Amino acid sequence: MSTWFITGASRGFGLEIARQALERGDNVVATARRPETIAHALSHHGDRVLAVALDVTDEDQARTAVSSAVETFGRIDVLVNNAGRGLLGAVEESTDAEVRSIYDTNVFGLLNVTRALLPVMRSQRSGRILNVSSLGGFSSSSGFGIYCSTKFAVEGISEAMHEELADLGIRVTVVEPGYFRTDFLDDRSLSTETTVIEDYAHTAGVVRGTVPGLNHTQPGDPVKGATAFLTLADAENPPVRAQLGSDCLKELDAKITQLRTESEAWRDLAASTDHDDVLV
């Protein structure tokens, strides 16, 4: 029996992962800003679920949540850093306040929870960390530049943690979902900038107009996606990165091709910047 600690567990991936972990007999610490919604959804699992109030931007609250988890279950085996929000708009259209707000949740919030929880896993010399990124964590696009930049940050943090924690018995995987039929495109999770600059009408503006029509028609099945999280948590040798969804795989292939084509075209320029005494 494992004990899971899941952020953003009131709906979407977080709630479905919690539900499936409980159904197979695990313990779950399910956190959200409004934990009463979790308690209602998962109440039939009794004392194997602990619903805890957690705003990931509050580091003290993160420490308190982790302490409650350990006090209740004695250990934490799997951390799912799932809490996050989106921002739709061109980079120039994005206000300083909105940019800082999304970084507070997606990046600094993830770090708050991870710092609070890692001493527990290090003392156990075991644990799994699943950091939720996105296909936008390796391939940015018009209209989602700020959001994607936060996921690029999560990718960099996760890759370093993978190296830093492996010898301590802790495995880190960054999970990159494509578009899944969750509530992420609802206005509760996705903010849209009110500033509109007409020069971006044919780039970010097109995305701004298209996204609402995609909601709840996305190709990814969140139930199957949540099952994939459990598979990754159980894997003996989990990957550093795991893509979820055929759309994510397609985008990954396109990104790899683009990087290879561009790097080959500019390879001579790259090599030309070494000192003359460097042997290539």
Score class of each variant (00 low, 15 high):
Ala270Met: 13
Arg122Asp: 06
Leu88Phe: 04
Ala39Lys: 09
Leu230Glu: 06
Ala116Met: 03
Ser126His: 04
Ser189Leu: 10
Gly109Leu: 08
Asp276Pro: 09
Val66Gly: 00
Glu159Cys: 03
Glu264Leu: 15
Thr31Ser: 10
Gly89His: 00
Thr195Ala: 15
Arg171Glu: 14
Arg11Ser: 14
Gly84Ala: 06
Asn27Met: 09
Ser133Ile: 06
Ser263Asp: 05
Ala242Trp: 01
Pro239Asn: 08
Asp277Ser: 15
Gly25Ile: 00
Asn82Gly: 07
Asp77Trp: 03
Thr150His: 01
Arg260Asn: 15
Ser123Glu: 14
Asn237Val: 07
Thr231Tyr: 06
Thr31Asn: 07
Leu259Arg: 09
Phe180Glu: 07
Ser123Met: 12
Trp4Asp: 02
Thr7Asn: 11
His40Leu: 07
Ser101Phe: 11
Leu88Val: 05
Glu159Met: 05
Ala53Ser: 06
Val211Trp: 01
Thr72Tyr: 03
Glu198Tyr: 13
Leu259Trp: 11
Ala65Leu: 08
Thr210Leu: 15
Leu135His: 09
Ile157His: 00
Ala69Phe: 08
Ala83Asp: 10
Leu279Cys: 12
Gly205Asn: 10
Phe13Tyr: 08
Pro212Asp: 13
Arg267Glu: 15
Arg33Cys: 10
Met1Ser: 14
Arg241Val: 08
Ser68Tyr: 07
Ala265Lys: 14
Glu264His: 14
Arg19Lys: 10
Glu16Trp: 03
Thr3Glu: 05
Val240Ile: 14
Ala265Tyr: 04
Asp253Arg: 13
Glu155Ser: 03
His202Glu: 15
Ser67Trp: 07
Val175Pro: 02
Gln20Arg: 00
Leu244Glu: 01
Arg75Cys: 05
Met1Asn: 09
Thr150Ala: 05
Thr194Gly: 02
Cys248Lys: 02
Val211Lys: 01
Ala204Met: 00
Thr3Pro: 07
Arg48Lys: 09
Ile17Asn: 02
Ala201Arg: 14
Thr257Phe: 12
Val280Asn: 15
Ser101Pro: 03
Val52Ser: 04
Pro222Trp: 03
Arg19Ser: 03
Gly225Met: 01
Val132Phe: 06
Thr210Lys: 13
Ala41Asp: 12
